[in-house]
Design a protein around this nucleic acid. Structure first.
Length: 303
DNA sequence: AGGATAGCCTGCGGGC
DNA sequence: TGCCCGCAGGCTATCC
C-alpha cells in the first residue's frame, strides 16, 4: 500500500522529528525483520528451501544507529534510509509497515506488531521520544548498514530512477526491453511495477497514471510511441506530486510518521472503482488481472 | 531474458 | 454466531 507518495510523507514527517537527535538505544523486538549487511539479500531464513525462521546472527547495535546522531532521512522509490553519523538503517514498509515518531510521554503497545524501537535523546542528553517500526504483516523490514554509501550500493543501486522526477527520456530508455528477443514483450503495467524500470510505482499509481495518460495497462511496451511515453512520464510525475500534497492514499493501514492519514484515495479515478463510471466518458470501468495484479481501467479512454 | 508462479503474513468481509 | 475462503499487495526465488 505505501507507494512513493506515502513513503515521501513518512520521510518528511520523520525527518522533521528526528534529525539532530541521538539514538541512545535500539531495541529489536523481532529479530527476523532485521537484515544485516552481510546477510543474503532476501533476508535470513525468510525464503524458499532454507529452513524458515532459522537462527540468525545477532546484528551489532551500532549498525542499527545505536550511538549515532541522525543526520537525514532519505528516500528512493519506496525505500527509506535513516542516516546516522556512524551507521545507517534502511526501512522498507512493504504492505503494512509504519515508521512512527512518538514524543517522550506518548505510549505504544509493545505487543502490537512493534518490531524495532530507537530511543532518542536531544543534545542535552534528555529523552526526546522514540522512533518505532511497526508491521502487521511483516512484508517490510529494516536493513542495518555501516554507512549510507553502503546502503545505497547494496540496496538502491539496482533500482530505476525515482518516479517523482522521471524524465520522458529516462522512462523511454528504461521501458525498452533490455534485449530484443523475439516477441517477448511485457505489458506497460508490468514494466511500471518493476522497480528496476522506475522506482516508487505500485498498483494504485500505475493504474492512475495509465488512465491519465490514456494508455491501456495491457499495451505491450514495444507498442508505445514517443508521444505515449512523454504523456506517461508527465502524468506519473503530476499524479505523484498531487498525491504527496494530499497526504497520500490511506486505504487501511497507511499513516505518516505523525499518525496522520492521507486523502488522495478520494481522488482516485480508477483504482478501487471497478464498475463505477469513467469520469471522462461515463462508461463503466472494467477490471481484470494484468501482470498478476488486480487492474482497473477504462476500455474506451485507454487503448 | 523475461514471464508466470508461489510464498511470505495477517485481518477482514462475504457467504453459508 | 462462527467458520472457511478469498483477497489485499511488495518483493524474492524458482522454474519455464
Amino acid at each position: 500500500m505505501p507507494e512513493l507518495p506515502e513513503v515521501e510523507r513518512v520521510r518528511s514527517s520523520i525527518e522533521r522529528a528526528v534529525v539532530d537527535l541521538r539514538v541512545s538505544a535500539v531495541i529489536v523486538h523481532r529479530r527476523d525483520v532485521v537484515t544485516g549487511p552481510d546477510d543474503p539479500p532476501g533476508g535470513w531464513g525468510r525464503t524458499g528451501e532454507t529452513v524458515r525462521r532459522s537462527p540468525k546472527p545477532r546484528i551489532p547495535k551500532q549498525l542499527l544507529l545505536e550511538g549515532s546522531t541522525i543526520t537525514a532521512v532519505l528516500r528512493h522509490g519506496k525505500q527509506l534510509a535513516i542516516a546516522g553519523d556512524a551507521s545507517a538503517a534502511g526501512v522498507h514498509l512493504g504492505m503494512t509497515g509504519q515508521l512512527l515518531f512518538r514524543g517522550p510521554g506518548e505510549n505504544l503497545d509493545k505487543n502490537d506488531h512493534l518490531h524495532v524501537t530507537w530511543k532518542l535523546r536531544n543534545d542535552r542528553d534528555r529523552p526526546a521520544g522514540r522512533l518505532v517500526f511497526r508491521d502487521l504483516r511483516r512484508f517490510g523490514g529494516v536493513w542495518a548498514h555501516r554507512s549510507v554509501q553502503e546502503l545505497v550500493e547494496q540496496r538502491w543501486r539496482s533500482l530505476g530512477p525515482d518516479a517523482l522526477d522521471i524524465s520522458a527520456a529516462a522512462l523511454g530508455d528504461r521501458l525498452r526491453p533490455r534485449r530484443q528477443s523475439g516477441s517477448a514483450t511485457r505489458s506497460v503495467k508490468a514494466a511500471l511495477l518493476d522497480q528496476k524500470t522506475v522506482a516508487g510505482v505500485g498498483n494504485i499509481y500505475a493504474d492512475e497514471a495509465l488512465f491519465a495518460a490514456g494508455i491501456s495497462p495491457q499495451r505491450p511496451v514495444n507498442r508505445l510511441d514517443p508521444e505515449d511515453i512523454r504523456r506517461l512520464a508527465n502524468e506519473l510525475r503530476r499524479i505523484l506530486r498531487r498525491a504527496i500534497k494530499a497526504g497520500g492514499s490511506t486505504l487501511r493501514d497507511y499513516v505518516d510518521g505523525d499518525g496522520s492519514s492521507g486523502s488522495f484515495q478520494f481522488l482516485h479515478k480508477v483504482y478501487g472503482r471497478t464498475g463505477c463510471l469513467c469520469t471522462r466518458c461515463g462508461k463503466p470501468l472494467r477490471s481484470g488481472q494484468v501482470a498478476q495484479r488486480t487492474t482497473v481501467w477504462c476500455g474506451e479512454c485507454q487503448c
